[in-house]
């Protein structure tokens, strides 16, 4: 499992907003250009990101092997034909091309996950999404990080309890219903307590925002992200508008 770890790499020192821009920008680019040029850009950005985060590609492959395994299924599904010749190379290659563009995005997102603590993502959300929606998302994301292990612990405990009482012999539906009903009950109980605590601590729309420092080296990162995000326009402009004009 790949999660945040403190460190002093270049990527650790970057502002989360620039890093988010590169991720989303890259996702847009690779989907807009399933071409050799697109792959080259994706590959370059991915290699640069891994270097900046001092993250080994092997550890990414290990952490996301399920994703990669599912992606590898694509070309097989694409090539299989019902009837002669049973496997067609053309569609399989098409599929391979589709699948390949996802790979750099997975690597870049892994670098983000490894090098960015939650509080920075929260701060970035609250600064980028305006007003009350940004406040709710900022606090909400922090709460999901906080409560995920707690609720997971609840569910595991409930599953163990159901099993201990001979639940294995009950039909699946019944077992699932018990786990869900108790899981929901405990979750809503926790939500009630959390509600009180938030209110008692003056949960407000207009707090002091967490500190974020946008420094000189963040500008090129942000510029790269914006350029990637706008890349589909580069073809539209000369390809569609200029000739018509």
């Amino acid at each position: 499992m790949l999660t945040y770890e403190p460190g002093d790499s270049v990527a650790h020192g970057l502002d989360p907003r620039g890093k988010l821009a590169v991720q989303f920008g890259l996702a847009i680019t690779v989907f807009a250009y399933p071409t050799p040029a697109g792959f080259a850009v994706g590959g370059l950005v991915a290699v640069a990101a891994l270097a900046a985060g001092r993250l080994s590609p092997v550890s990414v492959l290990r952490a996301y092997w399920v994703v990669f395994a599912f992606l590898a299924v694509g070309p097989i599904l694409g090539g299989v034909a019902l009837g002669d010749p049973w496997f067609r190379v053309g569609p399989a290659l098409d599929s391979l091309r589709s699948v390949a563009r996802v790979v750099p995005v997975v690597f870049v997102s892994a670098v983000y996950v490894r090098t960015t603590p939650v509080r920075e993502t929260r701060a970035a959300i609250q600064r980028m999404v305006p007003g009350r929606v940004g406040r709710l998302f900022g606090v909400g994301v922090g709460l999901v990080f906080r409560f995920f292990p707690v609720v997971l612990g609840d569910l595991r405990a409930i599953r163990t309890a159901v099993r201990a009482r001979g639940g294995e012999r009950r039909p699946l539906r019944d077992r699932v219903r018990r786990i869900l009903a108790r899981g929901l009950q405990r979750s809503f109980l926790r939500a009630d307590r959390l509600t009180l605590a938030l209110r008692a601590r003056c949960f407000a729309w207009n707090p002091t925002l967490p500190a974020l420092r946008f420094r000189g080296r963040d500008y090129p990162v942000l510029a790269l992200g914006l350029a990637l995000a706008c890349s589909p326009l580069f073809t539209l402009v000369p390809g569609r508008f200029i000739p018509v004009a």
């Binding site: 707690v150 609720v151 899981g183 926790r190 009630d192 959390l194 938030l198």
Partner: peptide, 17 residues
């Protein structure tokens, strides 16, 4: 506040499920 807390905990529950 109540809806936010419920939504966050339900998101955590989805994650756990």
């Amino acid at each position: 506040v109540r809806n936010l807390a419920a939504a966050a905990v339900l998101a955590a529950l989805t994650a756990a499920l």
